[in-house]
C-alpha cells in the first residue's frame, strides 16, 4: 500500500510540470473593458482628471485600450495609454503588466511601493508579488475572464475600490 501512496504523490509531482505549461489567453478587447472599468471604480487619494496608463511588456491589450479610450469622448476624465519602461513605472497611475513581463511584477511592485498606482497583471496569482488585480481564466465560471483582487495591496497604495469591482472579484491575499 505504501508504494501505491508513493505513486499518487509522484503523479501530483509530475502534474506540477503541467502547471508551468498552463498557458492562458484572453479576449483582449474584453480585458481592456475590464481595465477601463477598474479605473472608473477605483478612487485615487488625489482625485485626478487625467489617468495615465502604462503598459509593461507586449500585449494586445495596449491596442485594445487605446481603441477603447478613443471612443470614450464623453468621459469627465482623460486617459492616456503608452508603453513604458521600468524606469517610468512611477510616472503613471495604472501599470498593466503583460503576461510576457510577469517576471517584472515583483520589481515593479517594489519600485512603486506605497505609491497610489494600480498594478494589474495578465498573469494570475500575482497578488503575492504585489499586484492589485490579476486576470485569470475562470474555469469554474463558464471559462470566462475572471480577476483576482488583493484588497491588502490596494490599501497599502491608498487606493480604494468600490462594490462594482468587489462583487465580481475572487479575493486574494
Amino acid at each position: 500500500m505504501r508504494r501505491f501512496y508513493i505513486c499518487i504523490i509522484l503523479l501530483f509531482c509530475c502534474s506540477a510540470i503541467a502547471f508551468d505549461s498552463y498557458c492562458q489567453s484572453f479576449d483582449y478587447s474584453e480585458n481592456s473593458v475590464y481595465i477601463f472599468n477598474f479605473i472608473r471604480y477605483t478612487s485615487w487619494p488625489n482625485n485626478q482628471n487625467t489617468i495615465k496608463i502604462g503598459i509593461v511588456g507586449i500585449t494586445p491589450v495596449e491596442g485594445a485600450l487605446k481603441d477603447l479610450i478613443s471612443k470614450k469622448t464623453n468621459s469627465n476624465s482623460t486617459y492616456t495609454v503608452r508603453r513604458i519602461t521600468m524606469a517610468e513605472v512611477r510616472d503613471v497611475d495604472v501599470v498593466v503588466i503583460a503576461q510576457s513581463a510577469t517576471a517584472k511584477v515583483k520589481a515593479i511592485a517594489d519600485l512603486t511601493a506605497g505609491a497610489p498606482i494600480l498594478i494589474i497583471t495578465e498573469k494570475e496569482n500575482m497578488g503575492r508579488m504585489g499586484a492589485c488585480i490579476s486576470f485569470f481564466f475562470d474555469e469554474d465560471n463558464d471559462f470566462k475572464t475572471g480577476y483576482q483582487l488583493s484588497l491588502r495591496n490596494c490599501k497599502l497604495r491608498g487606493l480604494s475600490v468600490n462594490e462594482q469591482i468587489l462583487n465580481n472579484a475572487e479575493l486574494i491575499w
Binding site: S21, C23, S25, D27, S29
Partner: peptide, 24 residues
C-alpha cells in the same frame, strides 16, 4: 502533461466598450 494547452487568442468585433463589470 507536458503538452502546453494554451487557448487560442480570440478577437472580438463587437462593441464591448459600454459594458460594466457586471455586464461583462
Amino acid at each position: 502533461v507536458i503538452n502546453c494547452f494554451g487557448q487560442e487568442a480570440k478577437s472580438d468585433t463587437n462593441d464591448l466598450t459600454n459594458l460594466s463589470i457586471e455586464e461583462l
